[in-house]
Design a protein around this nucleic acid. Structure first.
Lengths: 152, 152
DNA sequence: AGCAATTAGATTGTGCGCAATTCTTTTTAG
DNA sequence: CTAAAAAGAATTGCGCACAATCTAATTGCT
């Protein structure tokens, strides 16, 4: 029902929307990389630690792999090896829950807790480097939250 | 120079911004997956074909791996194996340039050209399913373009 | 012409993402 | 009380991303 011209436009609009999301996500990750390298972390590892640091303030019902996966929208296929790496770095412990041996309870080590203060400087530095305003970024965050609800 | 409270807030704002980008990008890719599965394509392969289809209308100086990498912000380490898969699917040819044997010239096969009409339905379908307005998505695209310029 | 520097692409190795499967433990039904 | 179903993680396999390295071709300089 659409002319060839519509299809061209559709493919281009699509490109400039879903691709922008894809390219921006990678660009921001790339910007984080040098700062996180200094901490010995990858970007997904940093996100996991952000959640665990938040959980220090506001503990969830259970600090399990499942709860972490729900927060980050990731599954055990991604998280299990990542958490093993964080464990081998001495930042996280993966204990079995006493009340349910299927569950892994995630606990920050002393080193994992201590890393928080260093990590706190990372977003601050990037905010400055980007030259963006807090309002601009907050507005974008809100729009992305709407989009995420539509798709997730 | 910041109070503990500022650091907490910073880590949370950061979470809700860079994480939103990361989560949205994956959510949109996830939404594309079933449609692209039907075409036998992955999301990055679809993006590559979008560029090659655009190049049919507006050919670049050289349709090389380098030009494709500049368009998609990807390097040969990602593109070379991806293009080999598209080649083995019979969608793309990877010819050597006659004037410079280092360059690979990318050419759509007949099947690669033919796939375009099927692919054109994909973003249309997703737009409907998302329930989002074109204006909403266009505004988001523009904001992401600004962010990409800041970081890329 | 001859040789260093540059460039295009390919290769290698690590770490995600995610679908699909498997393993174990727990819960539920009959 | 046991067999079946369900739940939480782990494992397997594939395809990106990307840094680092390598190879081969081209360009520039003298």
């Amino acid at each position: 029902m659409s002319s060839p011209c519509d299809l061209e436009a559709q493919l281009k609009l699509d490109n400039q929307l879903c691709f922008m999301l894809y390219a921006c996500s990678r660009a921001v990750t790339r910007a984080y990389r040098p700062k996180l390298d200094a901490l010995g972390l990858t970007y997904p590892q940093y996100l996991v630690l952000l959640v665990l640091w938040e959980w220090q303030q506001t503990p969830p019902a259970q600090a399990t792999v499942k709860a972490l996966g729900e927060r980050l929208l990731l599954d055990s296929g991604t998280l299990t090896p990542l958490l093993k790496r964080l464990e081998s770095l001495g930042l996280v412990e993966r204990r079995r829950a006493q009340h349910d041996e299927r569950e892994r309870v995630l606990v920050l080590t002393e080193a994992g807790v201590a890393l928080k203060s260093q990590a706190a400087e990372v977003p601050q530095t990037l905010l400055c480097e980007s030259g963006a305003s807090l309002e601009e970024l907050a507005q974008l965050r809100d729009q992305l939250a709407v989009l995420l609800k539509r798709f997730a």
